[in-house]
């Protein structure tokens, strides 16, 4: 069985833990509980007839006082960048984290989750943000941990990318 490490990166309160909980345990909790440190979840999936154990590292969200410890990215085969378009400044944090990840672990598969799609009527992405997202040239999925929309695809698409990498 292949084992792959993936990391979830993003500003605080964008829904990283909720995406993992939805994917691994099929649950969603409305209340925001901040993640402290690191929590690793495992999920066994089968992709192209290969069993893959995904080691999903939920890393504490970034803010101005709490920065990502880049050593946690070591050994990752892919990462998910999570942004919350209802809070457009979280996209700026997403771009910074992408650069940080690329600098430290190189060009490995990545995927962007624009989360809280159930609140898409409150999304306020500027033209500049959309352009910058396109420039990253990474797959983008509109996800909702609340409804489960695109959550499965998010992890499976990344795993597929990682296997073909």
């Amino acid at each position: 069985m292949i084992q792959k490490k993936i990391c979830l990166l993003g500003a605080f309160s964008v829904g990283k833990t909720s995406l993992i909980k939805r994917y691994v345990d099929s649950i969603f909790e409305e209340k925001y509980l901040t993640t402290v440190g690191v929590k690793i979840d495992k999920k066994l999936v089968e992709i192209e007839r290969q069993k893959v154990m995904m080691m999903i590292w939920d890393l504490a969200g970034e803010d101005d006082f709490c920065k990502l410890q880049v050593s946690y990215l070591r050994g990752a085969s892919g990462y998910i960048l999570v942004g919350d378009p209802t809070r457009p400044h979280t996209l700026d944090r997403l771009f910074c984290l992408h650069k940080k990840a690329q600098k430290n672990i190189g060009n490995i598969p990545a995927i962007i989750a624009l989360n809280k799609h159930d609140l898409c009527n409150q999304w306020s992405l500027s033209f500049a943000h959309r352009e910058e997202l396109e420039e990253l040239q990474q797959p983008i999925l509109n996800t909702s941990a609340k409804t489960g929309d695109q959550v499965q695809s998010l992890f499976i698409d990344l795993a597929t990318q990682m296997l073909s990498n």
């Binding site: 605080f12 309160s13 402290v36």
Partner: peptide, 14 residues
């Protein structure tokens, strides 16, 4: 203690 501190500051920021 860390979780309480972080949660309070982030709730405030939100």
């Amino acid at each position: 203690e860390t979780a309480y501190r972080l949660q309070s500051s982030r709730d405030h920021l939100l």
